[in-house]
Amino acid sequence: MLPIEIIYKIILILAVFTVTLVVAMYSTYAERKVAGFIQDRYGPNRAGPFGIFQPLADGLKMFTKQEFIPDSSDKQLFVLGPSLAMLTACMTGVVIPWGGDITIGDKIVKLQITDINIGILYLLGVVSVGVYGIMIGGWASNNKYSLLGALRASSQMISYEIALGLALISLIMMTGTLSLGEIVRQQDEGLANVVYQPLGFLIFLICAFAETNRAPFDLPESENELIGGYHTEYSSMKLGFYLFAEYINMFISSALIASLYFGGYNFPFQHSLGLEGNMLSMVQTFVFFMKVFFFIFFYMWVRWTLPRFRFDQLMNLGWKTLIPLAILNMFITGIVIGYKNGFFNF
């Protein structure tokens, strides 16, 4: 690999990292504004025009609060918990294609950090490891409420990972690849995958809500029964890391939904606009972020609309509804693929 390409990769990694953090930061602001809008009130409007500096003020507050580690907690694991949550949240962005190819000088470079051919498996791996941050933090706090929150988080994420994986299998069967870049490229030629996989998309969306611990599945931190759930004992920026990781996960899963089911950076009639090369790529990136922002808004919309589930309802939905539906979806996908390949022509 040439040094210039390494430099380019480093720039891309830094850019993706910065964009992820900034979007997550302003998602907290957007969440409160959306909540305000839905509940017919203003939301934050004191720090700067329209309260635009509110996330900075929040961050400053988080950093300057007293750092407190409970005496009876497991000190190392107590620090490891939020660090792991943040680490796994930041790791998922590397396989997402953020836009088409751009040309710098005489080199064509992808707007994707790495297009590994097991991209989806990598994502599933990182997601499945992501639960440790919450589990370790909840256990190390040495508090009954934290422990209950951690247990809820782990059982919920394990349960919904199965349906999530099964929904993805139908998509992989259809596209025939595990690489995210290739899946997005295929949607340039054909229609968006949601047209072929509406049920799979629905299952994936519901599971994404559960995996990110967002309402209506935010039982690990349901405040009216568990105080703060797994982060009850946390203060200062360690609490900030947990909350922030949730927003990063939300951003990444929105990006995933957009690229897996809604064409990624592709948009209709993109090749008949007369745009070429870098201009087209820039428009594509813009469109991609618009899709992502819509799904982030959708997350918030649902949070401020639906009440929280009960834990047994959550488990029943996961095991008795979503998993059979996902298997049914896989079955139908298999039959359609078989029919297309002429397996039923006797």
């Binding site: 490891v129 440790y132 059982s155 394990i158």
Partner: peptide, 12 residues
Amino acid sequence: GAIMVLFIYVIM
């Protein structure tokens, strides 16, 4: 991602 989560779950 799966088996060890269940192990830790039981230990907790």
